[in-house]
Amino acid sequence: MAETLRRVLNLGTSARSGDEDTAEAGPPLLLLGGPGSGKTALLFAAALEAAGEGRGPVLFLTRRPLQSLPPGTGAALDPLRLQKIRFQYPPSIQELLQFLCSAHEARGPAPSLLLLDGLEEYLVEDLGPQDTAYLAALLLDTAAHYSHQTGPGQGCGLIVALQTQEEGVSGDGLLVSLLQRYFPAQCWLQAETPDPGQHCLRACLDPGGLGPRAEWCVVFRPNGEMQVTPWPAQAGDPSLDKGSSSGGQP
């Protein structure tokens, strides 16, 4: 699923190449970042990107409804794309599990992308490792069922966002290592400040063995608009960028 996110992160640059448009669902991706690191904005951008691919709808699961649509998604925010994003707000882990367990009973076209924002909001209710693993496994199983419905070559992707604590908190490490068992691909959002006075995040995408890591600088402007540029070290190296963009393709 790293490809969808890679496309989102490459939107602001000219690094988009033709062969990126093949809609192949990669391994499930875990999006990690601290509070306010732009996880929801990135997830929503991924939803819009997938909604524009002319495939099935996008299923967006979150406990709390989005307060506002992230600004700056610009031309992508067309009503036809928005219509294809279906929001579900399971209020508790029981409801979420119920939804995932009965996903095969839903009618209509199978989603092309399954997104879960705020996984941590479902994990606060005194869950043990096995329950956490069950939720992760069930998410994978649901996406696998959607893939089975959509047919070969057009699998359903899965991206799950998890809010991590401040760095150095060991409790997170166990949870993340447990989740990594189920999510081979990861994207980390970390606060960096290359320029004083500018809030910049470093997005590091590890596609899970399907290619090299890639990094971007994500800046949120005062109006909330998200601006993505390749991380400076990579900016002057088009070959690296090219290699990473085609790395996920067979």
Partner: peptide
Amino acid sequence: LASCHYCSCPAFAFSVLRKSD
């Protein structure tokens, strides 16, 4: 589950999940 590694039994939690800690 058929599509990924998960079993609801205690041994899975004990031998597989906890081992990965």
